[in-house]
């Protein structure tokens, strides 16, 4: 467990002094259900990639490769929008 900093060691007034460090914040832990891709059924229309509010659909060379589970909060929008039923929301039983 990382030791948290004291008041003398942190930036003034709650400033975040590094740009883009929200990426380091593990919001995937908020999730109850996680999206699982059926690559056979997927036609790579990329609607899931367009609709994902957390840019958590991983795409390479215009093909869906899976999900960024560190940041996916399990909202299920990708599964709801998928025209091929290629995304299933399953109970995320990992910690």
């Amino acid at each position: 467990m990382e030791k948290k900093k004291g008041w003398k060691e942190i930036p003034l007034g709650g400033l975040i002094t590094e740009a883009g460090n929200a990426e380091e914040y593990d919001t995937g832990s908020w999730r109850t259900f996680k999206p699982v891709l059926d690559a056979e059924a997927c036609n790579n229309c990329l609607l899931c990639w367009i609709f994902c509010p957390d840019t958590s659909v991983l795409v390479e060379n215009e093909e869906v490769k899976g999900f960024d589970y560190k940041h996916c909060k399990g909202c299920g929008i990708c599964a709801a929008e998928c025209p091929k039923n290629a995304i299933e929301m399953v109970l995320d039983e990992e910690e």
């Binding site: 948290k4 008041w7 942190i10 003034l12 007034g13 709650g14």
Partner: peptide, 10 residues
């Protein structure tokens, strides 16, 4: 986790 520390700064 940090609100209290920022109040302590204040």
């Amino acid at each position: 986790d940090y609100y209290f520390e920022h109040k302590r700064q204040e």
